[in-house]
Design a protein around this nucleic acid. Structure first.
Length: 804
RNA sequence: UGGCCCGUCGUCUAAUGGCAGGACACCGGUCUUUGGAACCGGUAGUGGUGGUUCGAAUCCACCCGGGCCAACCA
């Protein structure tokens, strides 16, 4: 157990842990500043919503602030409407940026000055190659790029050209400003990235003030730095951009403490189209009614559908924050919605697919007003409304079956059922129309069974909802199903989303449109709703009992028009509940997994007796360098190391040097090799072995200490970690960290007894057959001694006490 | 001659060398005037092979699988 770790960090996502660590180390002087930086080129979707929850959530939890910043550096795609809708969406989700609303376009002048700085430092140049030449010159992932013929222009010439670019002297594409980094860099983005381009286009905020515009990699990090952002959180596809981010900031002169970028995977949600590039065409083609169509996963679509913002925030919490690309099941969103609505939504009755039920023993023209609570007892909320009851009622067609399937608990010929909040009725007669369809049910009611009374304790197997025919209000109900037909095809759409020319993007849009589910929207015009809803606040979210959660469409369902959206269905414990839905209200198709099935692993090259697998790069290195090859022979021969270890020690001269330096101090090849190939490599953290703040000799001294029993191997690893972080002499560190080995049996016995006394339950479990719990006991003893105990001795002591 | 990142129950996620845990979903049961909710219980996982270690999901190597990168988009 790392002594600096803290139980408070457990369960915290890796970004929050990082923020916490930065706070603890004082890196940013106690400041936490995050930002949500959308480009105003479309409407926000639920993926953005999780990002908003992350950024604003961190700011709130750590006493910092979160900026809303429009990353509006591309005049051709952005507009005011999008900027307006984004602010509305963020606010609706429940977050507040205070006075921290910013626009990248307000920084253009400062960014220009930074570019001049870069030019003066010789770190940027004006490239006058045409676009195609720049593209070709960048090389490929397998080949280095070529230097631009303009790369070595003088500072003065660059300055002059850049100034004239700004002044509008050149047409689009005549020149660009590029960072002068490395055309052979393995990271393509570092191959002299384009910083500025000429674009004679009107910007929605800046008008024609500028004709050069900065590109993302240059602009974004500067925006963060200008605003003193501490943690710049973005999604994983920007991972490769981080290197440029750091280069620009360091090159311009923003030293520590400066903003740092952290990437997380972002949301991928089953059955949702989560890309502005994909949503846009659906809107433009009229497949959906607009960016706020309830079938869309846009925030405005969710809002219109009726999903409460609390549910989206809960969903974000459920999904979590990691770096692993994962697709979340729609069921989790549904759960979050139901969780919120179950506690809040008043229950009322609505019949979507009505079937007439006549109570023959109810006096003609007689009516009764029933008082019905809005909430079931378990919700614990007050409130009720009056529900009229009469001779003729509407019930759900699917709540009756002439030939009931097994397990059917509703109305059948000759059977009884309770009408919710009212009476028990018996079906005496089924009336058919000329087509043979059930047209009407003729029933009798039992006056003694009025809701709240139970004269003879009689139980009826089913309860169904209903609406009195004479008082029912006609309503339109809209049911939603996934917009796209299948997961696989959606996956293709994602592939087609890759960077491509405009014509191909259009093809992608076309193929997207071809996968639209024709049944994604079901409009039910026959619905009957109890009259109380007509006078409620139109923004009320209801549970239509046994049908799901609904609310009035905020666009089409206002005024007199009773138009309801189904926010989400109820969880159903009965498959046949599907039959309750009018045809066309498809459920999502059976789950399909995005992850490819893991094929059985080829067994060749592994398994007992198999040849060790050596690294190609190291084999090549030895082929080119006879000195390395000789070392390999020496290590496997005279020193008797396994090939795999020898391989790792002879990939570079530095590795072998390090190993041999350690060996000179402690002459045990097998042990030293183990430390070097396994433990030392584990603390490199991206560094080369020669960049470590300690040398091979220091490792040798540490290994010697462990071998001598002065320090446990476990504690030795802690010492190594400290050495990797800040250097130092092993013996002194052992002293300073208080890790001198404790192997005195009496001393350890007392600690062991103490641990066992603290965990009586676990001791019992161990004796009852959970041997793996020994790890817990050893771990506790190690913790108590800060890793200094000799684990062999501890195990022996434990065994004496537990296994006797 | 590629570089970087990611693989834990069906799904999402926790465990930061020491008990593989939670949630969703699913399956039982209790309760119920919603086939809802609630409550109780259950099934189920560290991609593979080696190595280091008293001890590996965690460290090392190789393999397998997935993602990102060659816009003058963000």
């Amino acid at each position: 157990m790392n002594e600096t770790s803290d139980a408070g960090a457990a369960g915290m996502d890796f970004i929050r842990q990082r923020v916490r660590a930065d706070l603890a180390s004082g890196r940013y002087d106690g400041r936490v500043v995050t930002r949500f930086p959308p480009e105003p080129n479309g409407y926000l979707h639920v993926g953005h919503a999780t990002g908003i929850c992350l950024n604003f959530g961190i700011a709130a939890e750590f006493g910092g602030r979160c900026h809303l910043r429009f990353d509006d550096t591309n005049p051709e795609k952005e507009n005011e409407e999008f900027a307006r809708s984004i602010q509305e969406d963020v606010r609706w989700l429940g977050f507040d940026w205070g006075e921290h609303l910013y626009y990248a376009s307000d920084y253009f002048e400062r960014m220009y000055e930074c570019a001049v700085t870069l030019i003066r430092k010789g770190l940027a140049y004006v490239d006058s190659q045409p676009l195609e030449a720049i593209r070709e010159g960048r090389g490929t992932v397998n080949e280095p790029g070529r230097l631009s013929p303009y790369r070595d222009r003088g500072v003065e010439e660059n300055l002059d050209l850049f100034r004239r670019m700004r002044e509008g002297e050149f047409g689009d594409g005549a020149h660009v400003l590029r960072g002068r980094i490395d055309m052979g860099h393995p990271n393509m983005l570092m191959r002299d990235p384009v910083l500025y381009r000429i674009r004679h286009a009107s910007h929605y905020r800046q008008g024609d003030a500028w004709c050069i515009y900065p590109l993302y990699d240059y602009a974004h990090c500067l925006e963060d730095a200008f605003e003193a952002v501490t943690h710049s959180i973005c999604t994983i596809e920007f991972e490769n951009n981080r290197e440029v981010y750091d280069w620009v900031l360091e090159s311009v002169g923003f030293g520590e403490p400066r903003p740092h970028q952290h990437e997380w995977a972002g949301l991928d949600l089953e059955n949702a189209v989560l890309s502005k590039r994909a949503i846009g065409p659906l809107v433009q083609a009229g497949v959906v009614s607009g960016w706020d169509d309830p079938r869309l996963a846009t925030i405005s679509g969710y809002r219109r559908r009726g999903i409460p913002p609390e549910a989206i925030r809960l969903f974000a919490k459920i999904v979590g924050v990691t770096r692993s690309g994962a697709r979340t099941e729609e069921a989790k969103l549904d759960f979050a919605i139901r969780e919120v609505l179950n506690a809040e939504a008043p229950r009322v009755m609505a019949v979507l697919d009505p079937l007439k039920l006549v109570i023959t023993n109810w006096p003609e023209g007689a009516e009764e007003e029933l008082e019905a609570p809005y909430f079931p007892p378990d919700v614990g909320r007050e409130g009720s409304r009056v529900v009229p009851f009469g001779r003729e009622l509407w019930i759900e067609r699917s709540d009756f079956a002439e030939h009931p399937p097994e397990g059917f608990r509703r109305l059948v010929p000759g059977g009884e059922v309770r009408l919710r909040h009212a009476y028990v009725v018996r079906c005496d007669e089924v009336v058919h129309d000329e087509l043979g369809e059930v047209a009407e049910l003729r029933c009798t009611y039992d006056a003694r069974t009025r809701s709240g009374t139970s004269p003879d304790g009689r139980k009826v197997k089913g309860t169904i909802h209903w609406v009195a025919a004479g008082h029912a209000r006609d309503a339109e109900v809209r049911l939603f199903a996934p917009l796209l037909l299948s997961e696989e095809e959606a996956a293709e759409a994602r592939d087609a989303d890759a960077p491509l020319g405009a014509s191909v993007a259009d093809e992608a849009a076309v193929s997207l449109l071809s996968r639209v589910n024709p049944a994604s929207l079901t409009v039910v015009r026959t619905a009957k709703v109890e009259p109380s809803v007509a006078s409620d606040d139109p923004a009320t979210r209801y549970q239509f009992e046994r049908n799901g959660y609904f609310w009035r469409d905020p666009v089409d369902g206002r005024g007199e028009a009773l138009v309801f959206n189904r926010i989400v269905g109820l969880k159903s414990g009965y498959d046949g509940a599907r039959a309750a839905e009018p045809a066309g209200a498809d459920r999502p198709a059976a789950d399909r997994h995005r992850k490819a099935p893991r094929d059985s692993q080829p067994s060749s090259g592994s398994g007992p007796g198999a040849r060790p697998q050596l690294g190609d790069a190291r084999i090549r290195a030895r082929a080119e360098d006879p000195a390395l090859a000789r070392r390999f022979e020496l290590y496997t021969g005279e020193l008797g190391l396994p090939e795999e270890q020898a391989d790792l020690l002879t990939g570079t001269p530095a590795a072998g040097d390090f190993f041999e330096a350690a060996l000179a101090v402690h002459d045990d090849a097998a042990t030293v090799a183990g430390w070097v190939v396994s433990d030392v490599r584990g603390v490199l953290d991206g560094r080369g072995i020669s960049e470590l703040p300690f040398d091979g000799a220091a490792l040798g001294r540490l290994v010697a200490l462990v071998a001598a029993g002065s320090v446990s191997r476990r504690a030795g690893k802690d010492v190594l970690a400290r050495m990797a972080a800040e250097g130092g002499d092993p013996a002194e560190l052992v002293e300073a960290m208080g890790l001198a080995s404790v192997s005195d049996a009496d001393e350890l016995a007392a600690i062991v007894d103490g641990v066992l006394a603290r965990w009586p339950d676990k001791v019992r479990e161990y004796r009852e057959g959970r041997p793996q719990l020994v790890g817990l006991f050893v771990g506790e003893v190690m913790k108590a001694t800060r890793g200094a105990a000799d684990p062999q001795v501890v195990r022996t002591l434990l065994s004496q006490r537990l296994d006797s």
